[in-house]
Design a protein around this nucleic acid. Sequence first.
DNA 1: GGGATTATCCAGCAGTCGTTGGATTAGGAG
DNA 2: CTCCTAATCCAACGACTGCTGGATAATCCC
Lengths: 214, 214
Amino acid sequence: MPRRRPGRPRRGDQRPTRDLVLAAATALFAERGFDAVGLRDVAAAAGVDVATVAHHTGTKAELYDACFARVFAAEREVLEAAGERARTALASGRAEALRALHDLVDVFVDFLEDRPETTALWLRRWLEPHRHADLDQRYAAPLYALVEELLAAAAAGGALVEPAPHVTVRSLVWAVHGHVVALAAQDGSGARERREFRTFVHRFLDGLYPPATP
Amino acid sequence: MPRRRPGRPRRGDQRPTRDLVLAAATALFAERGFDAVGLRDVAAAAGVDVATVAHHTGTKAELYDACFARVFAAEREVLEAAGERARTALASGRAEALRALHDLVDVFVDFLEDRPETTALWLRRWLEPHRHADLDQRYAAPLYALVEELLAAAAAGGALVEPAPHVTVRSLVWAVHGHVVALAAQDGSGARERREFRTFVHRFLDGLYPPATP
DNA sequence: GGGATTATCCAGCAGTCGTTGGATTAGGAG
DNA sequence: CTCCTAATCCAACGACTGCTGGATAATCCC
């Protein structure tokens, strides 16, 4: 491995080192977890010395936080864009709200299937509550609020009082993460699994909120 | 901490040291994970020296495996007992099969609510595929097969061909684990949460397999 | 050109890790 | 009592950990 050029970076230079380190660290943390990844592993994966990692990202805990913030910010961005589209459909009636709900869930599933490391970090977050202070406020809460809003709109006229919407949303979210984990654990493209999971999700929603009232 | 008596244990002695170590290690591993728990932590929690831990449970990896085997064996035992009861109901018709399905799921939820460390280890197992070789064969496969069998029986006459039963089962299992994690993360007794989750589960099953065909 | 700034690496510190060899003590077997 | 076995702890080894002080090099600003 050739030694990287030291010194101040040129004005319109290549990809900044900090992003390189964050990408490498995210992949490693998602696969092995906080304690099983050494700073020297991250440095080697990024083609950089340990001191350089520390120079750009500070403490190991700060690096960990930065990885989470980066991944979850991307997810939140995608979901809020899809949520904005869905929100406009809310005013158009129950059928449109139901379709918007289905679309939003599809976007969610697509996103996680494409970026399994998001699921890995999401799960690790639940197993390490002490390490993440404000992640829920910045990430989970807005997502839950949006989907609950759509669920409530879809249920309007359906007289759905229980279970509480947040229970339904949480269960759906965990089912999706379980699907992503199962995809990663098996071999093959998983095209069939993806198709069947979408079928399941739509049946799940239709079962709770039948599209046509008898 | 007084020094423990060395020497060969007396004939009808107290709780064997190995169980003490395994219990302490299980609690620590469930809370912090493999790498964040040192053998000295386990030893201290069990009131024992490090060398004693090694003497009884061998390598750290072997200790980890022993914890998993212990916890999952308990779960499998409970589920197979409930499954046996359910299996006899299968021959009595669709309505009885549906009720048996509901009962089995209730047993599953009750068990995990009472022993949250089972959920913690279950999740960690998915995040560390390299550390667990044969756990799926001994634990997950029989459970999945049983619930799928019940689902298929419940669906008989309902013309359910998709989604594939294992997708439904997996999603339900992950939803339950998500419920347990949420219970552990919140404060209070969580009695309301438990009640609402059961409502959700039963609605979930009824949505996929309506109890009365219209 | 001459600082000032920024980036990179080398070398090493102090601490913890899992693991082990050996000493000590207690009970069972004869 | 004497031998054997089993249980416990102490002390230490080598390896690895996160982190850092300082040297060097490349660029920017003037």
